[in-house]
Design a binder for these strands. Structure first.
Lengths: 154, 154
DNA sequence: TACAATTAAGATAAAATAGTCTTTAATCTA
DNA sequence: TAGATTAAAGACTATTTTATCTTAATTGTA
C-alpha cells in the first residue's frame, strides 16, 4: 500500500469537506459515518491537519472542520506531506540510506523518475480538481453510496 | 514505503546471490552479514521464496540458496509478487474496495496508469539486468562496502 | 444557566510488520 | 560414526500502525 490508511482517510475527508461548500463547518462524525470510516480515527487525522494549518476545526454545536484555504489551493501532496511525510518521494526503493546520484543502488535512476512523476501528479492535483472529477464524471469517494448511510444518522 | 522490508531484503539477497555465479549454494548468513541485514529475517524470506520456487535451498555444510532459474528469468516482479503480493498494482490508491473502470474513484485513471508503468518496470527488469547495472555502473547493493564486512566473518 | 452536541486529548487495545531466539534436521568432512 | 556447519521451523519479542474508549473542553440553544 503506497499511502497509509491515515493518509487515505485524510484525503477522503478533505474531498468530502470540499464538496460541502465553504459556508459552514462540516461535521467529522457525519463525514465518517457517510464514508464508512472510523470516526475516532478521522478525528485524530484532522487534529494533525489542523496543526499543519490545512483545516480549521471548531468544537461545540455546529462545530466541525473547514478547509483553511480554498479547495483549489490544497494539493493532494499537501495532505500526503502532512500525514505520511515526503519520504515516499525521497527514499531509495531498496531502502539503502545513502542511495543517491553519486552512489546509486541498481534501481536508483528508474525509481527516481517514477516517483517524481507520481509526486508531480499529487502536487498538480488539488481538492478542487478531485471534486470537479466527482461532479463531472460521477467519481465516487465513499465505499457505498452516500444516501445509504445518511439514513442511519438522520 | 512502497515495498515491505521483507521484500526489499528478498530483492537484495537474490541480487547478491545472482552476483556470486551459479555454481554453488550461497550462504544466507554470509549474505546477511555482508549486506548488513538481519540474518534470521533473510532466512524467513528465503523460506518463502523457496516455497514459491524462486530459489532452491540446501541445509548443511556448503548449504545455502541457489536461484531456481537463470538470473535473466527472474524478474523483480516475481520477487515482489512472492513476498508482498500484487495488491500494490491492483488496489485503488484511496483504498476503496470496488474502485474500477465502471465505478472509479476520483484518482482511478491516473493511478491505474502510474501503477501499470511501475509494474511494467518491475516485470521487465530481471536479476541479470540489475547485476549488469552493478557491474557496469558500479551500482551498489549493500549499505556499506562489501569489503568492510567480509573481514568480520572470515 | 442547564443541556445537548461536538471536537480535543490521552489512554488503551488490536493487528500487522519487523526482528530475535531456540531447537531440529540435513549435510559434509575428518 | 562423530562433530561441525548450515538452513528450516516454531515460538517469542518489539515496534509501528490502526482502531477504540473515556474524559475534558468548547459552543449553541432552550
Amino acid at each position: 500500500m503506497i499511502l497509509s490508511h491515515a493518509c487515505i482517510y485524510g484525503i477522503q475527508t478533505l474531498v468530502y469537506t470540499a464538496m460541502q461548500g465553504s459556508s459552514a463547518y462540516v461535521s467529522t462524525r457525519r463525514a465518517a459515518v457517510e464514508m464508512g470510516i472510523p470516526f475516532q480515527f478521522i478525528s485524530k487525522v484532522m487534529q494533525i491537519l489542523s496543526e499543519k494549518k490545512l483545516v480549521i476545526s471548531r468544537r461545540g454545536t455546529s462545530g466541525g472542520i473547514m478547509l483553511a484555504r480554498e479547495a483549489g489551493e490544497i494539493s493532494l501532496l499537501d495532505i500526503i506531506e502532512a500525514i505520511d511525510g515526503l519520504s515516499l518521494f525521497q527514499e531509495c526503493i531498496l531502502g539503502l540510506p545513502g542511495c543517491g546520484h553519486a552512489t546509486p543502488c541498481p534501481l536508483h535512476e528508474e525509481w527516481a523518475t517514477e516517483r517524481e512523476k507520481l509526486r508531480e501528479y499529487f502536487k498538480s492535483t488539488s481538492l478542487a480538481d478531485v471534486v470537479a472529477g466527482i461532479r463531472v464524471f460521477s467519481h465516487r469517494i465513499s465505499i457505498e453510496e452516500f444516501s445509504d448511510k445518511i439514513l442511519h444518522i438522520s
